[in-house]
Design a binder for these strands. Structure first.
Length: 399
DNA sequence: TGTGATGATTTCGG
DNA sequence: CCGAAATCATCACA
């Protein structure tokens, strides 16, 4: 293994290097040597370092010749070992500063390797200083400039390798994206929370408008297309698994209700709150689910009729809270039920997605003849703090 | 390591 | 172009 290669071997070879250092250095600068020899050694080291410093100022031929001389020098292995050690320390300190979330393990390993080689990662300004210190220690004096490494052709090589590395990295990432090997990361808990809240509170029409999507995307820190994916997946999976989702629906319904209760006071607006016959206040958690999917009858999807029958008695219970707050949870379904409305929507040709639940002419989930997410007959009303949920009826701004 | 959950992509129909 | 449905690929957890 030649010296260039040794340098390129980074921390993985540290043990070997340390060993090499102790061997090479101790052999050459043995403390047991007479003082006279030590003096000579120091001088020689100083000269070598000076030559290294000057080498880039010389013509190519001259430099080559000098490099050859250097390579043949008996102190060269020891010096090189020292440089390796310095580089090692530098790399370690650089790595210590890097506290980022670990990417792909393979990439991480590659990065670490390249970091160790100085190919990737931050410019190491401190490294040269360390090198200078170490050089000074070796040469026995503080006289050496602190950019010893900076000017070597080693650095040029590093730059070359660095650029190759970045190019390859780009290719790799590109390939990763385009070749089906997608990298997936789950959304944050908070984002999921927000999405679920929206979904379950718009269960009657889980098709966020463009604006709502954008708002949700902003809130969740994800892209609009991810929002689309999420809602697409959610609708399908909800449908497939209505029984299981019930629990979740429960949860979010309860949350929504309690939130609504907390924020209700101001907007008692135009709704006539019907003091429910069921003891108004305590509906919350356990009952909401019934309003959503309720029925559990076979097809898993709640036909509006079933909903109406099943839930009617509970509608009033929630109505008070929800209606008064602009209806965070399932407001549309209320309206619907109250009106006995269940008409297939969007005959006008507008897309379901384009209207929010609040809008007249709301959308419906079109799934093989089963009106899963029933259309809403919009008596919309808003008052929720969430701008995504209470857009003006004219919402479809962009068409 | 197996498995369910989940985000992304593909296919298909309107 | 949108959404449903199927499928893929990865994550996360026991």
């Amino acid at each position: 293994m030649d010296d260039q290669q040794r340098l390129m071997h980074g921390h993985g070879a540290s043990a070997t290097m340390a060993h090499g250092i102790s061997q090479g250095y101790m052999q050459t600068v043995d403390p047991s040597q007479p003082p006279h020899d030590q003096e000579n050694t120091k001088r020689e080291i100083g000269e070598i370092l000076q030559q290294i410093m000057n080498i880039t100022d010389q013509s190519l031929d001259e430099a080559q010749a000098r490099k050859h001389t250097l390579n043949c020098h008996r102190l060269k292995p020891a010096l090189f070992s020292v440089l390796c050690e310095i580089k090692e320390k530098t790399v370690l300190s650089i790595r210590g500063q890097q506290e980022e979330e670990p990417p792909d393990p393979q990439l991480l390993r590659l990065d670490n390797m390249l970091l160790a080689e100085g190919v990737a990662g931050p410019e190491k300004g401190g490294g040269s200083a360390a090198a200078a210190n170490a050089s000074a220690a070796v040469s026995g004096g503080p006289g050496q400039p602190d950019n010893a490494i900076e000017h070597s052709d080693y650095r040029a090589k590093l730059a070359q390798i660095r650029s190759i590395y970045h190019t390859e990295l780009e290719k790799y990432e590109q390939a990763l994206l385009s070749s089906g090997r997608r990298k997936r990361r789950n959304f944050s808990k908070q984002a999921t929370e927000i999405l679920n809240e929206y979904f379950y509170s718009h269960l009657s029409n889980p098709y966020p408008s463009e604006e709502a999507k954008e708002e949700l995307a902003r809130k969740c820190g994800i892209t609009v297309s991810q929002i689309c994916n999420w809602f697409g997946n959610k609708r399908i999976r909800y449908k497939k698994n209505i029984g299981k989702e019930q629990e979740e629906a429960n949860l979010y319904a309860a949350k929504a209700a309690s939130r609504a209760a907390a924020t209700m006071n101001a907007s008692q607006s135009g709704y006539n709150m019907v003091p429910n016959s069921q003891g108004g206040g305590q509906m919350m958690a356990g009952q909401q689910p019934d309003m959503y999917n309720l029925n559990v009858n076979g097809d898993g999807y709640s036909s509006s009729a079933a909903v109406g029958a099943n839930v009617q008695s509970q509608v009033n219970a929630l109505r008070h809270v929800i209606a008064s707050t602009g209806g965070y949870a399932g407001e549309n379904i209320y309206d619907r039920i109250q009106q006995g409305g269940n008409k297939p929507a969007s005959s006008s040709g507008s897309r379901p997605e384009s209207q929010d639940g609040n809008k007249p002419g709301g959308g419906e989930l079109r799934i093989s003849a089963v009106p899963e997410f029933p259309d809403i007959q919009g008596l919309s009303e808003s008052g929720d703090d969430d701008s995504t949920q209470d857009e003006p009826p004219s919402k479809r701004s962009k068409v």
